[in-house]
Amino acid sequence: MLKFYYNPLSPNARRVWLTLLEKQISFEPMVIKMDGDQYEPDFLAINPFHHIPVVVDDGLRIVESIAIMDYLEAKYPTPALMPAEAGAIATVRMAQLVTANEFFPKVIPLICENKDSPKWQQAQQELPLAFMSDLLGDSTYIGGNMFSLGDIVAGIAIQLTVALGVPLESYPNLEQWQQRLMDRVPWQSTQISEPDLENFRRRVKVMVRLRQRAMRQS
């Protein structure tokens, strides 16, 4: 059986978790506690970069969430989570890459700063919500009327920013899309609670402080 190494609080791991659930793929959950499990020799033998998620399927080890999602889509094509039309494929890919490269870097100040701080306000203003709203347009889902991997990646990110206090009232199509996602059973079953969110924020703050300390010492 496919083994899935993850932590429920990790946004990157949640991408794969929701993909597995949406596709109804059976898996063995291998929960990694991010307070040291990721540095254990057994896990480092699977991923020397000590990151989650990781999937091991039929002896094949795959790291990096989007690569794992592509693998799952190719090996388990039903139900399909990628459109067939070229423009829709490009839209899904844009949603994934803009989320990873432009959206998530702005989320760190939302996690680490107080809501009334200038850094928090600046990060909120710099979120590419207008771009994502234009990308969605009048479609039911990103890329068209079928739920896709783009909805998973972008949906998790925007869901997190809303939980952190960013309003979507200026983007009613994103609000409606988020509700459609939350109406899906896998999204309901994996929703992060308020205590889990606070735990996630604490962990991110610690990681940021450690990274800043390492940079000052280098």
Rank of each mutant, 00 (worst) to 15 (best):
L174W: 02
P172I: 15
R211T: 09
R15N: 09
I46N: 01
A163S: 10
K119M: 14
V153N: 12
A84T: 13
D37C: 09
A45K: 13
G36K: 08
L110I: 11
A157E: 12
E169K: 12
I89G: 01
M34N: 04
F27N: 05
N173E: 11
I89Q: 13
R184F: 05
Q38R: 09
T190P: 10
T99K: 08
E113W: 00
M146N: 10
A163D: 09
K106E: 15
Q125S: 11
E28A: 09
T91S: 12
M94S: 11
K115D: 10
G59M: 00
W177H: 06
T140C: 08
P8S: 06
S10K: 04
E102I: 07
E22G: 08
Q96M: 15
L81C: 04
S193Q: 11
P128H: 02
K119Q: 15
G36Y: 02
V208A: 06
R15K: 14
I52V: 14
S170L: 09
A123D: 04
S10H: 03
G144F: 01
R180I: 09
R211H: 06
R216N: 09
R180W: 03
I66W: 01
L168N: 06
D42G: 03
L20G: 03
I68S: 02
M94Q: 13
G150Y: 03
K106Q: 15
S65R: 08
L127E: 02
G36N: 06
E73P: 04
A13G: 15
Q124F: 00
A90M: 14
L60R: 00
A123I: 12
P118H: 01
L110Y: 01
L2I: 03
D70R: 15
K106L: 11
M215E: 07
I62V: 13
K115E: 13
T78E: 15
T161L: 11
M30V: 10
V16N: 07
A130Y: 01
F27W: 04
S170T: 11
P118F: 00
M94E: 14
N114H: 07
D35E: 15
Q121G: 01
L2R: 00
N47K: 15
W17R: 07
G36S: 08
Q121W: 01
Y76L: 14
D70G: 03
V98Y: 13
M182N: 12
G36F: 03
L181P: 09
I158K: 03
L149H: 04
R201L: 04
V185C: 04
V54F: 01
R180A: 07
S170Y: 06
D134K: 15
A157V: 11
I111L: 07
G137M: 09
M182H: 13
K115P: 02
L168S: 08
N7I: 13
L160R: 15
Q122M: 08
L160K: 05
A157N: 08
N101G: 08
D134L: 10
P77H: 01
K115N: 10
R180M: 07
M1I: 03
K205M: 14
N173G: 05
F4S: 04
I66K: 07
V98P: 02
R14I: 11
M182R: 14
V56I: 15
K33A: 14
